[in-house]
């Protein structure tokens, strides 16, 4: 039993890191633009498809991940330009609706571009097989994906906390009016934030490609989880989603020991439990 629990713990942390990567992007967009990005799932799917195309052209997986990030970031820019900005004057409900509409467009465009049959890709040979930890085995790719996610998250953290751009971003999140008054182009800042968040979603998609493949519906599956992670972490907290992502991954993984069928429902129950005890989320400030 102890063996099983520790095995699932390791597994849950690994999966949780991918959730965290996904939700971190959502969190940045929420923080800067103050909208829940309903197209985040579609951007995640876009990343997976782009990554697939790159590697099937014979290029390396690393290039695939880079293209997934850049492609989704550009799509994020387009979303900002054509879906968010035109309705930005009329409150956030129209923005949500257009983002939802944009998600439909992206998902169907993926089907048109890549066909209706899902796609698979095996990770590069060095990442195949499993590592035996003695008490459990961890597929190498899962280990890689979680370490890679952690590195990306740290890099973005450094970007936000240690650079001038990051200072603008933090200012834009905390005091948008003051930031504007200081002569910083907030519109440009919001577009950059959207690109960064979208890019992270795309990167998560590319990273998930060897695990879940590329299908047009993969985004919807992930979106629900990413939202829950965001709420548990606290909507007001930029980094809460990282810890919450790992928490959700671990809870889900441990739940498969007791009642596998409830492993998805449990994360919603956890969310409600957290909200009852701490209405602002685990790391949210009042």
């Amino acid at each position: 039993m102890l063996w099983l629990i520790s095995a699932q713990l390791v597994n849950g942390i690994a999966i949780g890191m991918i959730y965290a990567l996904m939700s971190f992007g959502l969190s940045i967009i929420k923080g800067l633009l103050n909208i829940p990005n309903f197209a985040h799932g579609a951007l995640y799917a876009l990343g997976a498809y782009l990554c697939y195309s790159v590697v099937s052209l014979g290029m390396s997986f690393a290039v695939g991940l880079a293209v997934a990030f850049l492609g989704a970031a550009l799509a994020g820019l387009a979303l900002d330009r054509f879906a968010i900005q035109p309705v930005s004057g009329s409150g956030y409900l129209p923005q949500l609706i257009t983002l939802f509409g944009a998600a439909l467009v992206i998902e169907q465009a993926l089907l048109i571009g890549w066909g209706t049959v899902g796609l698979s890709y095996s990770p590069p040979p060095i990442l195949r097989g499993a590592i035996n930890l003695g008490f459990t085995i961890v597929p190498r790719y899962i280990a890689f994906a979680s370490v890679f996610s952690a590195l990306v998250i740290s890099a973005v953290w450094l970007l936000i906390e240690r650079t001038k751009f990051g200072a603008y971003v933090r200012a834009g999140i905390e005091r948008p009016e003051t930031t504007q008054a200081l002569g910083i182009n907030v519109d440009l800042l919001l577009s950059a934030g959207m690109m960064l968040g979208a890019g992270l979603a795309g990167l998560a998609g590319g990273l998930a490609l060897p695990l879940v493949g590329a299908t047009s519906t993969m985004g919807g599956d992930m979106l629900g989880i990413a939202f829950v992670v965001l709420v548990i972490g606290g909507l007001g907290s930029l980094y809460g989603s990282i810890a919450a992502g790992v928490l959700v991954g671990v809870v889900q993984s441990l739940m498969t020991i007791a009642a596998p069928a409830a492993s998805t429902a449990i994360i919603y129950a956890v969310m409600i439990g957290v909200l009852l005890l701490r209405p602002q989320g685990l790391f949210g400030e009042r």
Binding site: S90, I97, A109, L111
Partner: peptide
């Protein structure tokens, strides 16, 4: 057969032109 795309475009256009 890819009709949700039309629906999505419709929604975006309506929102942008008739808030």
């Amino acid at each position: 057969t890819r009709w949700p795309l039309l629906l999505g475009v419709f929604v975006i256009v309506i929102m942008a032109s008739l808030p």
